[in-house]
């Protein structure tokens, strides 16, 4: 994301809401990334020359003369073997320092799998939990939601499933996870000696909620790389989808969209479905703690 020499810098923002800014700009593509006063943002609406940007970190402290730079590309993730064993934030930047991952830059949320090219799921993933294995078997290539109340030990169950499943890679997408839970996962994976099989994209409760919107697509892009390009078995854990949906509602609300059912945006159903897009050889476990 280096600044190109001929790039146009805008310095006049017309409107600022809690999550979005609107300004006049031309030649901007839909879904494109931008930087607003040093904060990362994404184009969510274009009306003539009025461009609306969703600022991931929130608009606190952004002034009407902040510098706005358009990157000309949608969010991407560099995929490569170097992803394994690393922890990233919602933008795909390594946490705890370390060198950025080298590899091919891929758009997140890209094209969908041709259903005709899928294989029929038939392989059991043994979790060692009788309630799952005997009654509600997880099959390789399936997606399974876990519904739970906040007082239930869902993260422990998911971590158990992750460790026992014979997957080559485990991708953890944490949305609105508490720092304690994040450290729980991290320590557990470290102690189990499986760090080299783990890729983590984490948005904790300390981070701005809107950033969460990037996490599922980041995790799935990495998963698709390992599954489709490398032919590995990948297990994806996304926790927790309710907080993800909350972030969608926040953005839609701040853009003055008409709320749909239960004040969720109308598109939430589709996004949830899309975010659980699966690959033929990719395991996936998704947690949806409340009924949606």
């Amino acid at each position: 994301m280096t600044t190109k020499a001929f790039q146009k810098i805008y310095t006049k923002i017309d409107n600022i809401t809690k999550a979005t800014v609107t300004l006049r700009a031309t030649g901007v593509g839909n879904d494109e990334l931008a930087t607003v006063g040093g904060h990362l943002a994404q184009v969510v609406k274009i009306m003539g020359d009025q461009v609306t940007l969703q600022v991931f970190e929130g608009t606190e402290g952004i002034s009407t003369d902040a510098e706005v730079l358009f990157h000309g590309v949608p969010p991407t993730l560099k995929v490569g073997d170097g992803l394994a064993g690393r922890f990233f934030n919602a933008y795909g930047e390594p946490l705890e320092g370390g060198a950025p991952v080298e590899g091919e830059e891929r758009e997140i949320g890209g094209p969908t799998v041709n259903p005709f090219r899928r294989r029929q799921p038939s392989e059991l993933i043994a979790t060692g939990i009788a309630g799952i294995d005997l009654n509600n078997t997880i099959v390789s290539g399936q997606k399974i939601p876990f519904f739970a109340d906040p007082d239930q030990p869902y993260n422990q169950v998911m971590a158990n499933v992750a460790l026992r499943a014979k997957a080559d890679k485990i991708i953890l997408g944490g949305m609105g996870m508490t720092n304690d839970d994040f450290l729980y996962f991290k320590n557990l994976f470290e102690n189990a000696g499986v760090l080299d099989r783990i890729v983590c994209f984490v948005n904790t409760t300390e981070n701005p909620p809107v950033e969460r919107l990037l996490v599922p697509d980041m995790a799935l892009t990495a998963a698709e790389y390992f599954a489709a390009d490398k032919g590995e078995k990948v297990l994806v854990l996304l926790t927790d989808m309710t907080l993800y949906a909350d972030a969608l509602a926040i953005v839609s609300n701040r853009m003055d969209q008409i709320p749909s059912k239960d004040s969720m945006p109308a598109r939430s159903t589709r996004i949830l479905q899309r975010s659980t897009r699966r690959l033929c050889s990719c395991h996936r476990v998704v947690r949806l703690p409340s009924s949606l």
Partner: peptide, 8 residues
């Protein structure tokens, strides 16, 4: 289809 990257 996806409108990603579409411009005015």
């Amino acid at each position: 289809d996806s409108t990603r990257g579409l411009k005015i």
